[in-house]
Design a binder for these strands. Structure first.
Lengths: 113, 113
DNA sequence: CACAAATATTAGCGAAGGCTAATATGATGA
DNA sequence: TCATCATATTAGCCTTCGCTAATATTTGTG
């Protein structure tokens, strides 16, 4: 309602719209982790992960705290955790539905042909 | 869990990560609407809206039905509706927190400086 | 202080995304 | 059948994004 600021909301949502970022969120879902832990776990590139962490932080999805030379990242608060849970449920439902009901070729979203 | 297919999930989420698409979802949130209704409401470009609708449909977020020469779009199911509701709640919380707590310059997510 | 580990930042490249204008398709009705 | 309305598709342009490699910054340690 009230014509929400879709611009800001879109930026917030963009945090969840990329594979690596989703994997990061999954990795720190239940416990905070350091950058190198995440890098190891995802077998990713340090620079790349670092950039995605910055993105997620900028989106307000995660927070960080420093401890010595380590920086721990975790989900911002319980709202985000709940959101991830709801997302999973909804996604599973929709995935099933889309996969099952529709012979419809394109699950592929907006990609160009 | 089970290392979900983040690739597909990311595509699903991408549907929610763009201003115009969020506006469309808002427009059809409570009732199905035709393309032209949406175009009018958003004061948008027909081609543009049509493309975003195709994207949302491809993501499994909305569905369409034809009635004469009109095509009505609506949210796929109640799960999506719930999801939008949860998103609003969480976003409001986070928006406040991010805006308030952090003097942190970047609310702007991953954008380059 | 010098060095090493942990993380962040920058630059540059190629791919994907979003927009507009133009054109195509499909349905209706005279 | 022709004209028109509703929608979809295509092409081209420009911007944004994600990745890698290289470099910088910060912190702890000998």
């Amino acid at each position: 309602m009230i014509t929400p600021n879709c611009d800001v909301k879109a930026k917030f949502m963009r945090g969840f719209s990329e594979k690596t970022r989703l994997q990061i969120l999954d990795a720190i879902r239940h416990e905070e982790k350091t950058v190198s832990q995440i890098v190891d776990e995802l077998k990713g590139n340090q620079s790349n992960i670092s950039q995605h962490l910055a993105c997620l932080k900028g989106c307000g999805i995660i927070v960080s705290r420093q401890e010595g030379k380590f920086i721990y990242y975790s989900l911002r608060n319980h709202h985000i955790i709940e959101l991830l849970n709801v997302l999973d449920v909804v996604f599973n439902e929709v995935e099933r539905e889309v996969a099952a009901c529709e012979k419809n070729d394109e699950l592929d979203g907006c990609t160009r042909k």
